[in-house]
Simulated assay, not measured.
Amino acid sequence: MLLDRFDQKIVALLVEDARLSVSDISRQVNLSRSAVADRIKRLEDQGEITGYHAHTKSIEGHNISAYFALSFRPLIRDLIQPLVNQTPEIKLAHYISGDIDLIVFVNVQSMARLTDIRVEMDRWPNIDKIVTHMCLANAVER
Rank of each mutant, 00 (worst) to 15 (best):
N85T: 04
D78W: 00
I25F: 06
S32R: 10
R113S: 05
K41M: 09
G47R: 08
I10S: 14
T132F: 02
V11Q: 05
L43D: 11
D122I: 10
I64M: 04
I40F: 14
F72H: 11
K41L: 10
E16A: 09
Y67K: 09
V119A: 05
V131Y: 12
D101A: 08
T115E: 06
R42H: 12
T132L: 11
R123Y: 13
D4P: 04
N63Q: 12
L43A: 06
N126H: 02
L20Y: 00
N30P: 10
L31K: 10
S97F: 15
L13F: 12
R5G: 08
H133R: 14
R118H: 03
M121K: 15
A12N: 10
A18H: 04
V131G: 14
I127F: 15
A112P: 08
I49R: 15
D24L: 00
S34M: 07
S58L: 09
E120N: 14
V108A: 05
L83I: 00
H53S: 13
Y67N: 08
Q28S: 07
N85P: 11
A37R: 12
I49D: 14
D7N: 01
Y95K: 14
A37G: 06
I90V: 07
L13C: 07
A139D: 01
I96P: 02
P82R: 07
N138M: 04
N107R: 14
A37P: 06
F105A: 07
A35P: 12
A137N: 10
L14N: 05
Q109S: 11
V140M: 03
M134F: 03
I49K: 15
E16N: 08
V140S: 06
G51C: 03
A54F: 13
V119F: 03
F105I: 02
A139L: 07
V11Y: 01
I49Y: 15
E120D: 08
A93K: 02
C135M: 10
N85R: 15
C135H: 07
G51F: 01
Q81C: 11
T132C: 11
N138F: 08
N63K: 15
V108E: 02
L92R: 00
A112I: 05
F72E: 04
E48I: 15
V22Y: 09
A139K: 03
V108M: 02
A69R: 09
